[in-house]
């Protein structure tokens, strides 16, 4: 009672306080995140951006010279940079599409009602295996497997699928596909887990209703499963696209960017740590940032649409 009256008398002030509180609370909750990101990412990004506008940065005795957009012009018109862009697009798009197909197929399989819970649990662990290894080990493992005298050639030769030993990573036509394959192998489990989650979220009655209408398995998949998974598919694909563009270790440690496998990340690395042209590397980095930010904007848009 006493508390009640006190509350009533203080109402306007308290209301004001509540109002400002409500205004500032969301920022307060976000503050640790924002502080961390501001210091540890915004500062370096701005630094890299500034580098990209200067020449003679870091690895140079001469003082930096402001050159405006010259570095960008140089990068964007470079033959090798363009090649890297088209390789990156192939690498990223193929990875995203196949990740999606494999991830979804495995998820459907592991969601099958024909399997017992223990079987599913066991195979779930097998299926996520590629996920638990660090990228450099995946590169080393696949170099062993894809060695001309490695086990893959041996098996394919014995089975008679190939007429002679193939040079998976050193053949100019094969290499980009081999690297993409390795990336596909190492990356699909993330889709798998997300799709498994998504499938469990689809209400059973949707399928029941579909079956009552006489839909077959394919129609159920096409008209219920896929549309229900759509938000997941979009967000996964966009995030994966960004992550694949950043993929450096796998490409670098398998082919070194040679044999038509130069991608933007290896191009940038070489500019920075092999040619020691940090200005060019920074400009390339900014281009990658721009591409990825565009994708990120799509991502946020798609999320908002899903919310509404």
């Amino acid at each position: 009672m006493v508390a009640g009256t006190a509350g009533e008398t203080q109402e306007p002030a308290s209301f004001m306080r509540e109002h400002t509180k409500r205004k500032f609370l969301p920022y307060a909750y976000l503050s640790p995140t924002l502080l961390l990101l501001a210091v540890l990412t915004v500062v370096p990004i701005v630094t890299v951006f500034l580098y990209s506008l200067f020449d003679n940065v870091i690895v140079n005795p001469n003082p930096p010279v402001f050159v405006g957009l010259e570095n960008y012009e140089e990068v964007l018109t470079h033959r090798k940079f363009r090649a890297a862009v088209s390789n990156t697009l192939y690498f990223a798009l193929a990875s995203v599409i196949v990740h999606f197909i494999i991830g979804l197929s495995f998820a459907l399989l592991l969601n099958s009602r024909l399997l017992s819970a223990n079987v599913k649990a066991f195979f779930r662990v097998i299926y996520i295996l590629p996920w638990v290894f660090t990228a450099s080990i995946i590169a080393i493992l696949w170099r062993l497997l894809m060695n001309p005298h490695g086990v893959i050639n041996f098996v394919l030769l014995e089975v008679g699928l190939i007429p002679e030993l193939l040079e998976w990573l050193s053949d100019r036509k094969l290499a980009i596909h081999s690297v993409t394959f390795i990336n596909i192998w190492s990356g699909y489990p993330f889709y798998l887990v997300s799709f498994l989650a998504g499938l469990q979220g689809i209400p059973d009655d949707l399928y029941e209703a579909g079956r009552v209408d006489g839909a077959n398995a394919w129609q159920l998949f096409w008209h219920i499963t896929l549309p229900q998974l759509r938000p997941i598919i979009i967000s996964l694909a966009l995030l994966d696209f960004i992550w694949t563009i950043h993929q450096f270790t796998l490409v670098w440690m398998t082919t070194g960017g040679g044999r038509n496998t130069e991608v933007l990340s290896t191009y940038t690395y070489k500019a920075a740590f092999s040619s020691y042209d940090y200005s060019e590397a920074s400009a390339t980095a900014m281009v990658i940032l721009a591409i990825c930010t565009l994708v990120a904007i799509f991502y946020v848009r798609s999320q908002r649409m899903a919310d509404e």
């Binding site: 995140t33 990101l37 210091v39 540890l40 990412t41 500062v43 370096p44 990004i45 630094t47 890299v48 580098y51 870091i58 995030l239 960004i242 992550w243 563009i245 950043h246 450096f248 933007l264 990340s265 940038t268 690395y269 920075a272 940090y278 590397a281 920074s282 390339t284 980095a285 990658i288 940032l289 591409i291 990825c292 930010t293 994708v295 990120a296 904007i297 991502y299 946020v300």
Partner: peptide, 21 residues
């Protein structure tokens, strides 16, 4: 957007300024 966009920065290029920081 910023929180999501942070992911779009290729980590290798940030290395030197990040190291300095």
């Amino acid at each position: 957007l910023i929180i999501i966009g942070v992911q779009s920065v290729p980590p290798i290029t940030l290395m030197i300024p990040y190291f300095g920081l």
